[in-house]
């Protein structure tokens, strides 16, 4: 096994917090991976997220739903500081990741993005790389050179992404030679190869056909045993199928957050009801 670099390990504070939690509570309420409080984000003068407070429990799947422009992708990106890649972005409020402030001066965005992986709407394998190179590139960039370890992580990641059986004989072929659904699972394999603790997914199946979508959904379900997953989706049936909890955003505000079964059976807020039943606008 590859030793996880110290920067990628869960914080000591988080581990301590786990140990002092009452056992009865820890059985029912998972510790939050993210504790977001009073978060606001602006692109220039334009507010994208306004005063959002939400706790995202660990090893669960949280779906973010809402109409276009409601801030759901911005919210997702702020969980691993990806939004900072957009110029003139300003943030207020707190985002604690396993008890540590993601935005404290000592927090390195590169390390943050290693611990909190991301899968995008459009599959984006590196076009000049083989399937194998695509998966292990993150490890190589982190200085891992041991061939045995790289091969081990390559196979494990592809197996976890439910792609190994389909590509094990074609590992040297270009990543771009795969189908759209396979490319997306390759990107998921690439994301999990560096052993993150969280996977953020921005509409990971929106460009896929129904069969490929179901494979990705099944994969998300299996990965939730090991990772905290936050998924942005426009597909409400998908949110309803794959997630444990659902958050509904509207014009940059968090309108409602709760158990997915409750949100889709009996939402408390009228705006949520109107949106999910198609009575919006």
């Amino acid at each position: 096994m590859i030793e996880t670099p110290a920067a990628l390990r869960p914080s000591v504070a988080h581990e301590r917090a786990k140990s002092i939690m009452p056992s009865s509570e820890s059985n029912t309420t998972p510790l939050p991976t993210f504790e977001v409080s009073n978060l606001s984000i602006w692109y220039g003068e334009k507010p994208a997220i306004q005063d959002v407070t939400i706790n995202i429990p660990s090893k669960t799947i949280t779906a973010i739903i809402g109409p276009s422009g409601c801030g759901k992708s911005t919210f997702l990106r702020c969980l691993n500081r990806m939004h900072e890649l957009i110029p003139r972005t300003r943030i207020e409020g707190k985002v604690l990741f396993q008890g540590q402030d993601l935005y404290s001066p000592g927090s390195d965005p590169t390390v943050v993005r290693r611990r909190i992986g991301m899968v995008f709407q459009k599959s984006n394998p590196f076009p000049t790389m083989s399937i194998a190179e695509n998966v292990v590139i993150g490890l190589k960039l982190n200085g891992v050179r041991n061939r045995t370890l790289l091969d081990e992580r390559l196979e494990n990641s592809l197996r976890m992404a439910a792609l190994w059986d389909e590509v094990k004989d074609d590992l040297r072929k270009p990543g771009m030679s795969l189908s759209g659904g396979q490319q997306q699972r390759l990107c998921i394999a690439r994301a999990i190869a560096v052993e993150p603790e969280v996977l953020l997914m921005d509409e990971p199946a929106s460009a896929l056909d129904p069969i490929a979508t179901m494979k990705v959904e099944e994969l998300i379900h299996e990965l939730s045993a090991k990772y905290t997953i936050v998924i942005v989706t426009h597909n409400m049936q998908q949110a309803s199928r794959v997630s444990d909890r659902t958050a509904f955003f509207y014009v940059g505000k968090l309108i409602e957050f709760g158990e997915t079964t409750e949100i889709f059976a009996a939402p408390k807020e009228k705006k949520t009801e109107d949106y999910i039943t198609g009575r919006f606008g």
Binding site: F264, A265, P267, E273
Partner: peptide, 9 residues
């Protein structure tokens, strides 16, 4: 229509 919430109920 795969209705949800009050429509489904």
């Amino acid at each position: 229509f795969q209705p949800v919430a009050s429509d489904l109920r």
